[in-house]
Amino acid sequence: MATVVVACPHCGQMVESNYEGNAHFDGVRQRLKSEYRLARETCPVCSHPYDLRRA
């Protein structure tokens, strides 16, 4: 499992996110196709979903 600190693409809040596996992290996007997505998270501040992108 890996932990990254990212900025929510909706509100800019810094959020700590976790994902399983050993894929390389390559940023945050609002919507991604499943083949590029490491994990889908929800911002605790604005409640919008965002995706962690695989490299």
Rank of each mutant, 00 (worst) to 15 (best):
Y36S: 04
H24W: 07
Y19C: 04
L38C: 09
V4W: 03
A39V: 08
C43A: 06
N22H: 09
V4D: 04
C11N: 12
L32S: 08
R54C: 05
F25P: 02
P9M: 02
G27M: 06
L52S: 08
M1Q: 08
H48K: 15
P49I: 01
A55V: 03
R29A: 11
N18R: 13
R54W: 01
V5E: 11
R53W: 00
H24A: 12
H24C: 04
N18V: 06
D51E: 15
V5C: 04
D51K: 09
G27R: 03
Q13V: 07
Y36H: 14
G27S: 07
M1R: 11
Y19T: 01
Y50M: 02
Y19A: 02
V6C: 10
H24L: 10
D26I: 00
V28A: 06
V45F: 12
T3K: 07
C43F: 12
C8L: 04
H48S: 14
S17Y: 00
Y36D: 01
S47P: 02
K33V: 05
G21P: 08
R37G: 11
C11L: 11
S34M: 14
H10K: 14
A39E: 15
L52V: 07
R53Q: 13
Q30W: 05
R54E: 06
H10I: 06
C8Y: 03
T3S: 09
R37Y: 01
H10M: 02
R29T: 01
Q13I: 07
F25M: 03
D51N: 14
T42E: 12
V28W: 01
S47L: 14
A2K: 14
Y36V: 00
P9L: 02
H10S: 13
T42P: 05
T42F: 12
L52A: 12
T3A: 01
S17P: 02
M1S: 13
Q13K: 07
S17W: 00
D51T: 04
C8S: 04
V5G: 02
R29P: 00
H24R: 12
Y36K: 15
K33E: 14
N18P: 00
A55H: 08
E35H: 11
H24Y: 05
P44V: 10
V15S: 08
P9Y: 07
R54V: 09
A7N: 15
D51S: 10
G27L: 02
F25H: 05
V4N: 04
V28N: 06
A23E: 15
Y36A: 03
V4Q: 14
V4M: 11
V28F: 01
L52R: 05
D51P: 03
S34Y: 14
L32Q: 10
R53Y: 00
Y36I: 00
E35L: 07
R54F: 00
G12Y: 02
G27H: 02
C8N: 02
A2V: 05
P49C: 00
C8A: 11
H10Y: 15
L52P: 03
G27E: 06
R31H: 10
P44C: 13
T3L: 09
Q30G: 04
L52W: 01
M14H: 12
Y50Q: 01
S34Q: 14
V15Q: 03
E35Q: 10
C11S: 07
E41Y: 04
